[in-house]
Protein backbone atom coordinates (compact mmCIF):
# COMPACT_ATOMS: atom_id res chain seq x y z
CA UNK A 1 0.00 0.00 0.00
CA UNK A 2 2.84 2.26 0.84
CA UNK A 3 4.44 1.50 -2.53
CA UNK A 4 1.22 2.49 -4.32
CA UNK A 5 1.03 5.83 -2.57
CA UNK A 6 4.60 6.52 -3.53
CA UNK A 7 3.80 5.73 -7.14
CA UNK A 8 1.04 8.29 -7.19
CA UNK A 9 3.43 10.91 -5.84
CA UNK A 10 5.93 9.92 -8.44
CA UNK A 11 3.37 10.22 -11.21
CA UNK A 12 2.45 13.63 -9.98
CA UNK A 13 6.07 14.62 -9.96
CA UNK A 14 6.59 13.36 -13.50
CA UNK A 15 3.48 15.16 -14.73
CA UNK A 16 4.62 18.30 -12.99
CA UNK A 17 8.04 18.13 -14.68
CA UNK A 18 6.42 17.58 -18.09
CA UNK A 19 4.09 20.48 -17.54
CA UNK A 20 6.99 22.67 -16.62
CA UNK A 21 8.73 21.84 -19.88
CA UNK A 22 5.72 22.40 -22.12
CA UNK A 23 4.60 25.37 -20.10
CA UNK A 24 7.99 26.93 -20.75
CA UNK A 25 7.68 26.50 -24.49
CA UNK A 26 4.15 27.88 -24.61
CA UNK A 27 5.10 30.85 -22.45
CA UNK A 28 8.02 31.53 -24.74
CA UNK A 29 5.84 31.48 -27.83
CA UNK A 30 3.38 33.89 -26.25
CA UNK A 31 6.12 36.20 -25.01
CA UNK A 32 7.84 36.09 -28.37
CA UNK A 33 4.65 37.10 -30.18
CA UNK A 34 4.19 39.98 -27.75
CA UNK A 35 7.76 41.22 -27.79
CA UNK A 36 8.32 40.80 -31.49
CA UNK A 37 4.93 42.21 -32.44
CA UNK A 38 6.26 45.49 -33.89
CA UNK A 39 8.65 43.60 -36.14
CA UNK A 40 6.04 41.04 -37.18
CA UNK A 41 3.63 43.84 -37.86
CA UNK A 42 6.22 45.71 -39.93
CA UNK A 43 6.90 42.63 -41.99
CA UNK A 44 3.20 42.02 -42.62
CA UNK A 45 2.70 45.66 -43.57
CA UNK A 46 5.58 45.56 -45.98
CA UNK A 47 3.92 42.81 -48.02
CA UNK A 48 0.50 44.47 -48.01
CA UNK A 49 -0.83 46.12 -51.11
CA UNK A 50 -1.94 49.67 -50.11
CA UNK A 51 -5.59 48.77 -50.67
CA UNK A 52 -5.48 46.18 -47.89
CA UNK A 53 -4.83 48.90 -45.36
CA UNK A 54 -8.47 49.92 -45.28
CA UNK A 55 -9.84 46.40 -45.54
CA UNK A 56 -11.33 45.42 -42.17
CA UNK A 57 -10.55 41.78 -42.95
CA UNK A 58 -6.87 42.49 -43.41
CA UNK A 59 -6.04 44.34 -40.23
CA UNK A 60 -3.03 42.20 -39.50
CA UNK A 61 -2.54 39.67 -42.28
CA UNK A 62 -2.51 40.86 -45.88
CA UNK A 63 -5.23 39.50 -48.15
CA UNK A 64 -3.16 39.67 -51.29
CA UNK A 65 0.49 39.58 -50.21
CA UNK A 66 2.85 41.28 -52.62
CA UNK A 67 6.55 42.02 -52.83
CA UNK A 68 6.10 45.05 -55.05
CA UNK A 69 6.53 47.46 -52.12
CA UNK A 70 10.14 46.37 -51.84
CA UNK A 71 10.85 47.34 -55.43
CA UNK A 72 8.59 50.39 -55.48
CA UNK A 73 10.32 52.04 -52.55
CA UNK A 74 13.44 52.36 -54.69
CA UNK A 75 11.41 54.50 -57.09
CA UNK A 76 10.18 57.07 -54.60
CA UNK A 77 13.61 57.79 -53.13
CA UNK A 78 17.25 56.95 -53.93
CA UNK A 79 17.16 54.13 -51.40
CA UNK A 80 19.90 52.27 -53.26
CA UNK A 81 22.17 55.26 -52.87
CA UNK A 82 21.30 55.58 -49.18
CA UNK A 83 22.13 51.94 -48.60
CA UNK A 84 25.40 52.20 -50.49
CA UNK A 85 26.39 55.25 -48.42
CA UNK A 86 25.47 53.55 -45.20
CA UNK A 87 27.35 50.37 -46.08
CA UNK A 88 30.42 52.42 -46.93
CA UNK A 89 30.23 54.45 -43.74
CA UNK A 90 29.48 51.49 -41.50
CA UNK A 91 32.21 49.29 -42.96
CA UNK A 92 34.85 52.02 -42.78
CA UNK A 93 33.92 52.89 -39.21
CA UNK A 94 33.91 49.23 -38.15
CA UNK A 95 37.27 48.37 -39.69
CA UNK A 96 39.01 51.47 -38.41
CA UNK A 97 37.57 51.10 -34.92
CA UNK A 98 38.86 47.54 -34.72
CA UNK A 99 42.34 48.55 -35.84
CA UNK A 100 42.61 51.68 -33.69
CA UNK A 101 41.17 49.89 -30.65
CA UNK A 102 43.61 47.02 -30.79
CA UNK A 103 46.62 49.19 -31.53
CA UNK A 104 45.76 51.33 -28.52
CA UNK A 105 44.96 48.34 -26.35
CA UNK A 106 48.28 46.77 -27.30
CA UNK A 107 50.14 49.88 -26.22
CA UNK A 108 48.19 50.14 -22.98
CA UNK A 109 48.65 46.50 -22.07
CA UNK A 110 52.09 45.54 -23.36
CA UNK A 111 54.19 48.66 -23.69
CA UNK A 112 55.59 50.30 -20.65
CA UNK A 113 55.76 54.05 -20.91
CA UNK A 114 55.23 57.06 -18.71
CA UNK A 115 51.64 58.20 -18.45
CA UNK A 116 50.21 54.87 -19.57
CA UNK A 117 47.64 54.67 -16.81
CA UNK A 118 46.79 58.35 -16.96
CA UNK A 119 46.19 58.26 -20.68
CA UNK A 120 44.05 55.15 -20.42
CA UNK A 121 42.02 56.81 -17.69
CA UNK A 122 41.56 59.84 -19.91
CA UNK A 123 40.34 57.69 -22.80
CA UNK A 124 37.97 55.79 -20.54
CA UNK A 125 36.63 58.99 -19.01
CA UNK A 126 35.31 60.09 -22.40
CA UNK A 127 32.77 57.29 -22.13
CA UNK A 128 31.11 59.36 -19.42
CA UNK A 129 30.53 62.31 -21.71
CA UNK A 130 27.23 61.93 -23.54
CA UNK A 131 27.59 62.57 -27.24
CA UNK A 132 24.83 65.13 -27.06
CA UNK A 133 26.91 67.23 -24.69
CA UNK A 134 29.55 67.85 -27.33
CA UNK A 135 27.58 67.59 -30.51
CA UNK A 136 27.02 71.35 -30.85
CA UNK A 137 30.73 72.10 -30.81
CA UNK A 138 31.47 69.14 -33.04
CA UNK A 139 28.92 70.34 -35.54
CA UNK A 140 30.11 73.95 -35.51
CA UNK A 141 33.68 72.73 -35.90
CA UNK A 142 33.12 70.46 -38.89
CA UNK A 143 30.87 72.97 -40.58
CA UNK A 144 33.52 75.64 -40.19
CA UNK A 145 35.89 73.26 -42.00
CA UNK A 146 33.34 72.83 -44.78
CA UNK A 147 33.10 69.12 -44.06
CA UNK A 148 29.33 68.98 -44.16
CA UNK A 149 27.66 66.91 -46.87
CA UNK A 150 30.59 64.53 -47.22
CA UNK A 151 30.96 60.88 -46.29
CA UNK A 152 34.18 61.87 -44.53
CA UNK A 153 32.29 63.81 -41.89
CA UNK A 154 30.28 60.69 -41.10
CA UNK A 155 33.34 58.47 -40.81
CA UNK A 156 36.34 60.38 -39.43
CA UNK A 157 34.91 61.43 -36.05
CA UNK A 158 33.94 57.81 -35.41
CA UNK A 159 37.12 55.92 -36.28
CA UNK A 160 38.06 55.78 -32.60
CA UNK A 161 35.75 54.45 -29.94
CA UNK A 162 36.65 54.71 -26.27
CA UNK A 163 34.26 51.90 -25.50
CA UNK A 164 35.93 49.56 -27.98
CA UNK A 165 39.36 50.46 -26.63
CA UNK A 166 38.04 49.56 -23.20
CA UNK A 167 36.68 46.29 -24.59
CA UNK A 168 39.99 45.47 -26.26
CA UNK A 169 42.00 46.24 -23.13
CA UNK A 170 39.61 44.07 -21.12
CA UNK A 171 40.02 41.19 -23.53
CA UNK A 172 43.80 41.52 -23.21
CA UNK A 173 43.58 41.24 -19.42
CA UNK A 174 43.35 37.48 -19.79
CA UNK A 175 45.77 37.33 -22.68
CA UNK A 176 48.78 35.24 -21.64
CA UNK A 177 51.68 37.67 -21.39
CA UNK A 178 54.11 34.83 -22.04
CA UNK A 179 52.83 34.53 -25.59
CA UNK A 180 53.94 38.10 -26.20
CA UNK A 181 57.35 37.34 -24.69
CA UNK A 182 57.62 34.13 -26.61
CA UNK A 183 56.93 36.00 -29.85
CA UNK A 184 59.54 38.56 -28.86
CA UNK A 185 62.15 35.85 -28.33
CA UNK A 186 61.14 34.34 -31.66
CA UNK A 187 61.97 37.67 -33.28
CA UNK A 188 58.47 38.93 -33.90
CA UNK A 189 58.16 42.70 -34.17
CA UNK A 190 55.46 44.38 -32.13
CA UNK A 191 53.36 45.38 -35.11
CA UNK A 192 53.66 41.88 -36.52
CA UNK A 193 52.62 40.51 -33.15
CA UNK A 194 49.48 42.65 -33.07
CA UNK A 195 48.27 41.50 -36.45
CA UNK A 196 49.49 37.90 -36.70
CA UNK A 197 49.20 36.67 -33.12
CA UNK A 198 47.21 38.97 -30.87
CA UNK A 199 44.29 39.75 -33.14
CA UNK A 200 43.76 36.20 -34.46
CA UNK A 201 43.58 35.05 -30.84
CA UNK A 202 40.98 37.66 -30.01
CA UNK A 203 38.59 36.79 -32.81
CA UNK A 204 35.60 36.51 -30.46
CA UNK A 205 36.22 40.00 -29.13
CA UNK A 206 36.78 41.34 -32.61
CA UNK A 207 33.56 39.64 -33.67
CA UNK A 208 31.47 41.23 -30.98
CA UNK A 209 33.23 44.55 -31.49
CA UNK A 210 32.55 44.42 -35.22
CA UNK A 211 28.89 43.64 -34.64
CA UNK A 212 28.50 46.51 -32.20
CA UNK A 213 30.40 49.03 -34.31
CA UNK A 214 28.61 48.09 -37.48
CA UNK A 215 25.17 48.22 -35.93
CA UNK A 216 25.71 51.53 -34.19
CA UNK A 217 27.18 53.03 -37.36
CA UNK A 218 24.33 51.64 -39.43
CA UNK A 219 21.77 53.03 -37.02
CA UNK A 220 23.48 56.39 -36.46
CA UNK A 221 20.94 59.19 -36.59
CA UNK A 222 21.63 62.55 -34.92
CA UNK A 223 25.09 63.19 -36.39
CA UNK A 224 24.17 62.49 -40.04
CA UNK A 225 20.94 64.40 -39.53
CA UNK A 226 22.97 67.47 -38.61
CA UNK A 227 25.87 67.15 -41.01
CA UNK A 228 24.33 65.88 -44.23
CA UNK A 229 21.66 67.52 -46.24
CA UNK A 230 22.07 65.95 -49.62
CA UNK A 231 20.82 62.70 -51.09
CA UNK A 232 24.29 61.82 -52.37
CA UNK A 233 25.67 61.37 -48.87
CA UNK A 234 22.51 60.60 -46.92
CA UNK A 235 22.42 57.41 -44.90
CA UNK A 236 19.48 55.05 -44.93
CA UNK A 237 18.16 56.11 -41.52
CA UNK A 238 17.99 59.77 -42.54
CA UNK A 239 16.62 58.89 -45.94
CA UNK A 240 13.82 56.79 -44.47
CA UNK A 241 12.88 59.35 -41.86
CA UNK A 242 12.55 61.93 -44.61
CA UNK A 243 10.09 59.82 -46.56
CA UNK A 244 6.60 61.19 -46.63
CA UNK A 245 4.17 58.72 -45.09
CA UNK A 246 0.88 60.56 -45.19
CA UNK A 247 -1.20 58.30 -47.39
CA UNK A 248 -1.57 54.53 -47.35
CA UNK A 249 0.50 54.07 -50.52
CA UNK A 250 3.56 55.79 -49.11
CA UNK A 251 3.03 54.22 -45.72
CA UNK A 252 3.54 50.66 -46.94
CA UNK A 253 6.47 51.79 -49.08
CA UNK A 254 8.11 53.40 -46.08
CA UNK A 255 7.61 50.27 -44.01
CA UNK A 256 9.10 48.21 -46.83
CA UNK A 257 12.06 50.59 -46.71
CA UNK A 258 12.31 50.12 -42.95
CA UNK A 259 12.30 46.35 -43.37
CA UNK A 260 15.04 46.60 -46.00
CA UNK A 261 17.08 48.87 -43.73
CA UNK A 262 16.86 46.38 -40.89
CA UNK A 263 18.08 43.40 -42.88
CA UNK A 264 21.83 44.16 -42.87
CA UNK A 265 22.05 44.97 -39.17
CA UNK A 266 19.89 42.00 -38.24
CA UNK A 267 21.91 39.69 -40.44
CA UNK A 268 25.20 40.90 -38.98
CA UNK A 269 23.73 40.56 -35.52
CA UNK A 270 22.53 36.99 -36.01
CA UNK A 271 25.75 35.84 -37.66
CA UNK A 272 27.91 37.73 -35.18
CA UNK A 273 26.13 36.30 -32.18
CA UNK A 274 27.18 32.81 -33.19
CA UNK A 275 30.81 33.70 -33.74
CA UNK A 276 31.02 35.35 -30.34
CA UNK A 277 30.55 32.10 -28.50
CA UNK A 278 33.90 30.51 -27.93
CA UNK A 279 37.24 31.88 -26.94
CA UNK A 280 40.22 30.76 -28.94
CA UNK A 281 42.83 30.95 -26.23
CA UNK A 282 41.88 27.63 -24.64
CA UNK A 283 44.80 25.27 -25.05
CA UNK A 284 47.35 28.06 -25.32
CA UNK A 285 48.22 27.87 -21.70
CA UNK A 286 48.36 24.58 -19.85
CA UNK A 287 45.50 22.11 -20.08
Amino acid sequence: MKAKALNAAELKYIRHEKMKKWGGIILNIAWWAFLMFPLIYAFLMSVKPPADLYDPNAILFPKNPTLSNFTDVFKVAPVGRYILNTVLVAVLITLSQIVTSFLSAFAFRFLKFKGNKFLYGLVISTMMVPGEAVIISQFLMVSSWGWTDTLMVLVIPHIVSAFNIFLAVQSLENFPYEIYESAKVDGCSDLNFVFTIMMPLLKPTIGSMAVRSFISAWNMYMWPLLTTNNDNVRTIQIGLSMLNAEDSQSMVLMIAGVVISMIPSLLIFVIGQKSMVKGLTSGAVKG
Binding site: I179, S182, K184, V185, V285
Partner: peptide
Protein backbone atom coordinates in the same frame (compact mmCIF):
# COMPACT_ATOMS: atom_id res chain seq x y z
CA UNK B 1 70.47 43.77 -27.22
CA UNK B 2 66.85 42.71 -27.84
CA UNK B 3 65.89 39.10 -27.06
CA UNK B 4 65.73 37.96 -30.65
CA UNK B 5 69.35 38.97 -31.27
CA UNK B 6 70.79 37.33 -28.15
CA UNK B 7 70.91 33.91 -29.74
CA UNK B 8 68.90 32.38 -26.97
CA UNK B 9 65.73 30.31 -26.91
CA UNK B 10 63.26 30.19 -24.11
CA UNK B 11 60.76 27.64 -22.90
CA UNK B 12 58.01 29.22 -20.86
CA UNK B 13 56.17 27.86 -17.86
CA UNK B 14 52.82 28.03 -19.67
CA UNK B 15 54.53 26.84 -22.90
CA UNK B 16 53.14 30.02 -24.56
CA UNK B 17 52.34 28.21 -27.77
CA UNK B 18 50.47 30.16 -30.42
CA UNK B 19 47.02 28.56 -30.17
CA UNK B 20 45.89 29.46 -33.66
Amino acid sequence: IPPKDRDIAMVFQSYALYPH
